[in-house]
Computed example of a mutant assay.
Amino acid sequence: MEIFELHRGTSPVILAFPHTGTYVPPAIWDQLDDNGKILADTDWHIHQLYRALLPGASTIRATHHRYVIDVGRNPTGASLYPGQNTTGLVPETDFDGMPIWSEGEYADAAETQRRLAVFHAPYHTALAAEVARVRATHGVAILFDCHSIRSNIPFLFQGKLPDFNVGTADGTSCAPAVEAAVLDVARSAEGYTSVLNGRFKGGWTTRHYSNQAGGVETIQLELAQATHLVAEAPPFALDPGKSERLRAHLGEMLQRLEALAPSLAEAQP
Rank of each mutant, 00 (worst) to 15 (best):
R8A: 10
S11L: 11
S11G: 11
P12V: 10
V13H: 14
L15F: 11
L15P: 11
T20H: 07
G21N: 04
T22M: 15
Y23P: 00
P25F: 07
P25T: 08
P25L: 06
P26A: 13
A27N: 13
L32S: 03
K37M: 12
I38W: 12
T42A: 04
H45F: 05
I46N: 08
H47T: 02
Q48G: 05
L49G: 02
L49N: 04
L49W: 06
R51Y: 07
R51T: 09
T59Q: 09
R61F: 06
A62F: 15
A62M: 13
H64S: 03
H65Y: 09
H65I: 12
H65S: 11
V68H: 10
D70I: 07
G72V: 05
N74Y: 08
L80Q: 12
P82C: 13
Q84E: 15
Q84Y: 14
T87G: 01
L89A: 07
D94P: 10
F95R: 07
D96P: 00
G97M: 03
I100A: 03
W101N: 13
E103G: 01
Y106D: 03
Y106L: 05
A107M: 12
A110K: 10
E111W: 03
R114W: 04
R115C: 08
L116W: 12
L116R: 14
A117W: 05
A117N: 09
A121W: 01
L127E: 11
A129N: 06
V131Q: 08
V131L: 12
A132S: 12
R133E: 06
V134D: 02
A136S: 03
T137A: 15
G139P: 09
V140M: 08
L143M: 10
H147L: 01
I149G: 04
R150W: 04
S151W: 06
